[in-house]
Lab assay of single mutants.
Amino acid sequence: SEFSSRSGYGEYVQQTLQPGMRVRMLDDYEEISAGDEGEFRQSNNGIPPVQVFWQSTGRTYWVHWHMLEILGP
């Protein structure tokens, strides 16, 4: 990996993601499973900070930056 740390990767995702971009989950996290795909909606200063609309659940759920792989527009 070109990223030395999880936080470095998270910063990359945070700087790159734009609303509407497709993402894939890298880790299991509460209701969301690794491999689930969705659409980035928004972020804020909460914890976790990233709101994604997940195809698997049909609704939005908040996750962490480093848990997401960017699939593209």
Rank of each mutant, 00 (worst) to 15 (best):
A34T: 05
R6G: 08
L26D: 10
W65G: 03
Y12A: 10
E39S: 06
H64Q: 12
R59T: 12
T16G: 07
R24Q: 05
Q55E: 13
A34P: 11
G46I: 05
S5K: 15
F3N: 09
W65P: 14
V50G: 07
F3S: 14
W62P: 15
F53S: 06
Q18G: 07
Y9H: 09
F3Y: 10
I70H: 08
M67F: 03
R59V: 06
F40H: 01
W54F: 15
Q51C: 11
G10M: 10
D28C: 05
Y29H: 05
G20R: 04
P19C: 12
P48D: 02
G38K: 04
S7N: 14
D28F: 05
H64C: 06
T57Q: 08
D36E: 10
W54I: 13
T60P: 12
H64P: 12
T16P: 01
Q42K: 14
R6D: 15
P19T: 09
E11D: 07
N45P: 06
S56H: 07
P48S: 06
E37A: 01
L26A: 00
P19Y: 07
S56N: 13
M25E: 07
I47D: 15
R24G: 15
N44D: 14
R24A: 02
S56K: 13
R41V: 14
S5F: 14
Y9L: 10
L26T: 10
V13F: 02
Q15E: 04
V13S: 10
L17H: 00
Q18A: 08
E39R: 01
L71V: 13
M21Q: 14
S5H: 10
V63D: 06
V23Q: 02
S43I: 06
F40K: 11
H66W: 08
R24P: 04
Q42R: 10
Q18N: 05
Y12H: 14
E69A: 07
H64I: 04
G46V: 15
R22H: 06
H66F: 06
P73S: 06
W65T: 00
R41C: 13
R59D: 13
Q18L: 12
S5V: 11
E11A: 12
M21V: 04
V50Y: 07
P73D: 12
A34L: 08
D28M: 06
F3G: 08
L68S: 00
R41F: 07
T60F: 06
T60E: 14
L17D: 07
G46L: 13
M67V: 02
G46A: 14
M67D: 12
D36R: 02
W65E: 12
L17V: 05
L71A: 04
Q14T: 12
A34W: 02
Q18E: 13
Y29A: 08
V13T: 03
G10T: 11
E37K: 00
D28T: 14
G46M: 12
S43Q: 09
Y12K: 15
Q14N: 04
D36I: 02
M67S: 13
Y9E: 15
L68T: 05
E31Q: 14
T16S: 11
Q55G: 08
W65V: 03
P49S: 00
Q55R: 12
V50D: 05
E31C: 11
E69Y: 00
A34G: 04
